[in-house]
Amino acid sequence: MSVTALHQVSPAPQGARLSIDKIGKVFTGPSGGSVKAIDGVTLNVEPGEFLAIVGPSGCGKSTLLQVIAGLMSPSSGAVRLGAQDVTGEPAHMVYLFQQYGKSLLPWMSVAENVMFSFRHRIVMTRSAARARCDEYLAMVGLLDFADHYPWQLSGGMQQRVAIARALAAEPKVLLMDEPFSSVDALTRLDLHALILDLWTAKRFTAVLVTHDVDEAIFLADRVAVLTHRPASISEVIDTNLPRPRLSIETRESPNFLALRHRLLAHLLARPGGAAHDAR
């Protein structure tokens, strides 16, 4: 697929429904004390849906995403992809880390990093692997940097490599842990547009964890709001904003601003919310 193909008619959503069923997570400290991080979170994500999860910092949203990804086991409840229980790292889910600088492996070139996501799963020739790698690098506009090393690229470029690598695994579900929070503001808008393009082209299910309300509304079909620790769902809001979303126009539309107002008011009003922290 070439870059231009991104703008063609998108395929039907792939994959299966992601069910998060009464997930709870309790951490036991070394001294025997325990902290409840997640308290009974239930969410269903339809195939091809873009769901955002927002919550105050430290509320346990990253923990929730790691449990969904199978990187951490829940203390109670279960995660299912279609009819299958998620245990261990499921084959069709990929986790995109906030810390691209640590997630990209510095001893591998950009192309080797991308191939690291799928080469071990599929029997394929070197040239076929490279072709698939190049396809995804082209989508994020970094084909010319395939033989560079990650540390030779800017932060925004590194996160685009991480995105290309995650998608090259061709996951049914892409789990994103604040992937845009460590880049500058303009690069962030750029990456928002990119991820929407890729999502439209590939129709994977997307779950994004963020503390950025604007980002959540701009990208997602639905926004789930978490309470302060222990995290539970306090509200799920349909964004109902038309697609394709436009970097400037969508963010200025009355509906966007109304949603933003509602979500921010909701997040700031609660005791223990951001407003509370600021005092």
């Binding site: 790691q66 990187l71 084959a91 986790y95 880390f97 810390q99 640590k102 997630s103 071990h120 799963r121």
Partner: peptide
């Protein structure tokens, strides 16, 4: 070794 590196390998099913 940063746990993120190990989790990266795990999420791709290594």
């Amino acid at each position: 070794v940063d746990p993120v590196m190990i989790d990266t390998a795990r999420t791709f099913g290594h």
